[in-house]
Design a protein around this nucleic acid. Structure first.
Lengths: 253, 253
DNA sequence: GCAAAAGTGTTCGGGCTACACCCATGG
DNA sequence: CCATGGGTGTAGCCCGAACACTTTTGC
């Protein structure tokens, strides 16, 4: 029995706009190696698997500041090419500012997802300056035994493995669930941040524009105002906030 | 590297009341072996792990009618006694009426949970006619690295392993999450059921009384009325409903 | 008739949505 | 002065909570 570990690492990028007076545009990113695979680690006989995952991340970024949780364990014919293998995937969130290093073979890719009209198919584009990966992934309703299940399938062959696309898909779904029920959003940001930055994190994960007036009210109990201000855009400076430690939403496994 | 599988199997029991004119009282149940452990299966070299889990369940109950999903993979020093082991847990729901057999060493236990006032500790009692297992489990907030995490710990030694109590706890949390977001509640019931039966499933999983008028309105789009009626109590018969196949809530992994 | 369950209708309040509007800043 | 973002207030709407009330049945 062969057992492996796997990392789906999310981060965000701040991109300058052409119009320099506008806010930087945040994008959700994922880390892939030179073969468009997720970073893998070998599960050793002498260490607990989660600790091994953490050590691998520390090795990649030379930092101990990141969020980690188990995503899923793959060993299902639906998703797996080889029999007799098990792959445990961990979901990781890093703030780029906490990264001290990045191996040459690993690169962050912007994630862009477009829903195809009147289908359950999504067109996904992973891109950076050097490379552009495109694929389409469909959500299929599978009626099996006592219930229904949602499966994902890669509908067009691409230069990325089906399992990788499914893990990315599953990871984003998990982010969406977590961002509504926990405080993971703050893992993308510095200790101090503007409300608009937090809102951008919500927007890129939920993939929709939010009305800032309503967003403020919603997250108000989660954050604490500081005395500092910051000038992100060319206009009115924004107040810096920190996470309100008193407010901890119960997380649901 | 040793790898094993594990099953947390939930079901419900219909208990007669002393007052025979009242409705049978549903209770949430879990399946344990004679040593108070969850059913284990060995992961073979020749089969996918989920399929192995399904085969084990079919072997236990002599039925193919059950709900299954992966719960969690344990291999963390926090929860595990032995190093160098991995345990993949699957969550299962069965309707007793679909069970054709049950090995002698396996028994269902009623689950009763009481929150201890002003603490995050819960007193749990697992009981049937022959046996009674009691323990207390605490939820501990652990601040680690970039975020907070909830851990569970067995606070009083008991004749049940800590890992088993944590898996039961995690399983119930998962049921609570799923019952609000998917249609798993129906896996506990027959194809045709009364609204009050469905309500009882919600009540035992969420562990609180619901107001039936509001419950009806909430689940109305999920169910379809049939022509049949059933007399569960000694009083007014109730209309039989089925699951409305048109209504399928998106499940979130 | 009454106790228990099945089933319907109504009111109230909190939270989300949408939008109007003011403030601050730099070009 | 105006475009853009920061920030506040408010009105409407929907949904859930609470509860009153009717119907049906067996003892």
């Amino acid at each position: 029995m062969k057992i492996q570990g796997n990392l789906i690492i999310f981060s965000t990028n701040n991109e300058e706009r052409k119009d320099v007076r506008r806010l930087k545009e945040k994008k959700l990113q994922v880390l892939l190696d030179e073969n468009n695979n997720l970073p893998i680690f070998e599960v050793s006989k002498n260490e607990y698997i989660r600790r091994t995952a953490e050590r691998k991340i520390e090795e990649i970024f030379k930092t101990k500041k990141f969020y980690i949780e188990q995503l899923y364990t793959w060993g299902n014919p639906e998703f797996y090419t080889e029999e007799n293998e098990i792959l445990v995937t961990y979901l990781v969130i890093v703030n780029k500012k906490n990264i001290n290093d990045l191996p040459e073979n690993l690169n962050f890719y912007d994630i862009s997802i477009k829903n195809k009209e009147n289908t359950t198919t999504q067109h996904v584009e992973l891109s950076n300056e050097k490379k552009n990966i495109q694929y389409e992934i469909a959500t299929i309703l599978k009626r099996n035994r006592e219930s229904v299940e949602y499966l994902n399938r890669l509908v067009k062959k691409s230069n990325i493995s089906e399992l990788t696309t499914i893990i990315i898909h599953t990871g984003i779904k998990r982010l969406r669930n977590r961002i509504e029920n926990t405080n993971i959003a703050f893992s993308f940001l510095d200790k101090e941040f503007a409300v608009s930055e937090l809102q951008q994190v919500y927007e890129i994960i939920l993939d929709k524009k939010l009305i800032s007036a309503n967003f403020r009210k919603k997250i108000e109990p989660m954050i604490k105002r500081t005395d500092k201000v910051i000038k992100e855009s060319a206009y009115r400076p924004s107040v810096q906030y920190t996470f309100n430690e008193d407010y901890i939403k119960k997380s649901v496994l």
